Simulated assay, not measured.
Amino acid sequence: MKRCQSCGYPIVGEAREVTPHSDSAARSTLYLHKTADECTAAKKQRLASSPLQRALRRS
C-alpha cells in the first residue's frame, strides 16, 4: 500500500511517483496523490471515520 508523502494517508488508485535525485541512490521513491483535491478528500474521509470525531459530533 502506498502512502502519500504530503498527507500521510493511503493512496487508493493511481499515485504520482517522485524519484528524488541522489548520487548514492539511497533515497526511495516518494508517492503523492494525483491531485491536491484527492489529498484533501483522503484527509476528510479519515476524519469522518475517526472514533474521536464521531464522539465529538454526538456531544
Rank of each mutant, 00 (worst) to 15 (best):
M1W: 06
K2Q: 02
R3K: 13
R3V: 07
R3H: 13
C4S: 05
C4N: 04
Q5A: 11
Q5R: 07
S6T: 10
S6Y: 02
S6E: 07
C7E: 02
C7I: 03
C7A: 06
G8S: 13
G8I: 00
G8C: 03
G8F: 06
Y9I: 02
Y9G: 01
P10D: 07
I11A: 01
V12W: 02
G13T: 11
G13F: 02
E14S: 12
A15Q: 05
R16C: 10
R16D: 05
E17C: 07
E17A: 15
E17K: 12
E17P: 00
T19Y: 05
P20N: 10
H21T: 11
S22W: 07
A25N: 14
R27Y: 09
R27D: 12
R27I: 10
S28V: 09
S28L: 14
T29L: 04
T29F: 04
L30M: 14
L30T: 00
L30P: 03
Y31F: 13
Y31N: 03
L32D: 01
L32V: 02
L32I: 04
L32K: 05
H33R: 02
K34W: 03
K34L: 14
K34I: 14
T35H: 10
T35G: 03
A36W: 07
A36T: 11
A36Y: 13
D37Y: 13
E38M: 09
E38V: 03
C39T: 07
T40A: 14
A41V: 10
A42H: 00
A42N: 05
K44Y: 06
Q45M: 15
Q45W: 11
Q45R: 14
Q45L: 14
Q45G: 03
S49C: 13
P51W: 08
L52A: 13
R54N: 00
A55F: 02
A55P: 00
L56Q: 11
R57V: 05
R57H: 08
R58Q: 13
S59K: 12
S59R: 11
